[in-house]
Design a protein around this nucleic acid. Structure first.
Lengths: 333, 333
DNA sequence: ACAAAATATGTAACCGGTTACATATAGCAT
DNA sequence: ATGCTATATGTAACCGGTTACATATTTTGT
């Protein structure tokens, strides 16, 4: 591979001049520029990004830390992030954390050493102190789905509580008399907020009791398990609000296996709006987040900060909307 | 951030010595080493990866080029790649190509400039010439799911034709009298091979005709469309082999919508073995690939080559196996 | 006891860019 | 004609590591 010095020599100029041509800064004579460009073409010269990164401490790379890419929610999110990054000439490094903080720690260490320009954090188990460490290193940070007291860090999240309320109201409106909630792991803010939304609506209804809230790990198996326990404890449940779509899918499977008809006997509503909610039968009613937009906004805002177009941190709450499908349907009594 | 010179100065040695301590090479006195290590701890020094990369032309980064991460097959594959890479201290850059060759070209350019150590190519539309370009640049390459004449490039693929034969044999064995095939885009080798496998089995059966082969784009919508056309043209079809699971899911939806019972009236078999085949009702019979293993092998082998542990290219054919589920069931006549 | 080999450490060039600073010429106002 | 500014280009230090080579000391072999 040709280097900048090869180009300089062949064009009869100094490396500084070539660099100026490359970066379109400083004064360069038109003729000189043309000559340099010609040589660049001839040699098929491409500036070495690593050398560039070393010199100006920018790598054109951002990292996306997420629990696991195998969760469709994060697949879509990361697709958005990569699309947006590419449109701005950035590349993306992926990190599956499995929500393990040791793993997150390790990643952050590695990323720091690699001069990563910025990080999008979609994995929620990292403590505030750790985030502070990143900040100290001056790495711009965008966090998804959590509120932070500390200021120097952008946050983008969905209206989880509001979405949960929408879901439960919808279930009640379609005629449910007793609505249970399959909750995600309470370490995660999203899971907390959705549970809160559920509580907001049902807490004063006479049928409500704590045992209508079951843990489901945000996973398919968790959703299945929750339904089994639920039906045993509350055979009269006729509505389920699952804290995410994967649990809803699991719930649907379990209900089917138990011979309970959806939506005739039990209505079911998920949360997230992943594509797979249209793959089941019946299709799942769900509270859709603007997943792609979330990823795109996160990436574009992060890159804006990296490039110094803005130094303001953002705190965005994205709308959610209910998508009514076959798993909930108005019932007549 | 402390630099190697800071460490050297504080420890009263030269940078070369510190470097030797860091890389565990060359001669270093025990006491000196201890002293250097102590200073490293004190300063919380981490070697700058970018500088290192520039010096030794290795970045500890590999790239994975795939059609789109939103296809669950590739989600799982990339999970495997990332896990394996991490276990060897490598990071992974993701590239969604959407099977556009311009996009792939651009990526390769960028990756070359970034001194990426190696590339895993899971996107099949790139021509041989382009692959040659990568090879000329000396970038180790592992290609998934395609055969290449040219030698200097490892290939890992599944036994697609064999898998397809298994699928069709299974459908016939469960009592199907007329089996159609929903095929993927024929630019892709995998799609070709699966179609070939289907042909191998049915070509001499009296009911076979070309119009039983329908294009389905490897997508859900494609699968739906294919089924609609199929049922119109061949109402007597009682078995469908879909070239991948997404199309099978689409087919299942369409059949359901048309009131055709699976497996009672039509048996359905997919290909890939993605998790979502267990999310549908009935669950989908499918020819499972060793997706995770494919990704893991690709990554580990690539890194072996990057690190010079081997310079042999690999040509691996992974086994596939039929998973029988509810979408195909033995019928009695 | 002496040469050869092993151990220990330092100097400085190098990887391939960027950029502060120095220098030189041309254009323009006074 | 003089001084000031805008234009044009080059020199060399710098980013933060690695490593070839030189040098000095210690150990080993005979």
């Amino acid at each position: 591979m040709a280097t900048i010095r090869d180009v300089a020599q062949r064009a009869g100029v100094s490396v500084a001049t070539v660099s100026r041509v490359l970066n379109q800064n400083g004064y360069v004579n038109q003729d000189t520029e043309a000559r340099v460009m010609k040589v660049i073409k001839e040699l098929d010269y491409r500036p070495n990004t690593v050398a560039r990164s070393l010199a100006n401490r920018k790598t054109g790379t951002i990292a996306l830390i997420l629990p696991t890419i195998m969760n469709p929610f994060f697949s879509e999110l990361s697709r958005a992030v990569e699309d947006s990054a590419r449109s701005r000439g950035f590349t993306v490094i992926f990190c599956n954390s499995d929500d393990l903080d040791t793993r997150e720690q390790t990643y952050i260490d590695v990323l720091r050493q690699k001069y990563i320009d910025g990080i999008i954090f979609a994995s929620s188990s990292l403590g505030e102190e750790d985030l502070a460490v990143i900040n100290e290193n001056g790495i711009p940070l965008v966090v998804l789905d959590r509120a932070l007291r500390e200021g120097n860090c952008s946050v983008i999240r969905s209206k989880n509580a509001e979405g949960a309320r929408k879901a439960v109201h919808h279930l009640l409106a379609t005629g449910c008399r007793k609505v249970a909630h399959i909750a995600g792991p309470q370490e995660l803010i999203t899971a907390q907020e959705r549970l809160r939304g559920y509580r907001d609506v049902v807490k004063d209804l006479d049928w409500f009791e704590e045992s209508l809230i079951l843990p489901g790990q945000f996973s398919i198996t968790g959703g299945k398990g929750a339904v089994q326990a639920l039906v045993e404890a509350h055979p009269d449940v006729d509505g389920i609000f699952a804290g995410n779509d994967l649990m809803a899918i699991g719930a649907l499977k379990a209900l089917h296996r138990m011979g309970i008809k959806v939506p005739e006997e039990v209505s079911l509503c998920g949360f997230d709006g992943i594509g797979a909610t249209e793959w089941t039968e019946p299709e799942l009613t769900t509270v859709a987040q603007l997943i792609y937009e979330m990823g795109a906004r996160a990436a574009l805002h992060l890159i804006d900060r990296v490039q110094g177009y803005t130094d303001q941190v953002e705190d965005l709450e994205l709308d959610v909307h209910l998508i009514e499908r076959g798993s909930t349907r108005r019932r007549k009594y």
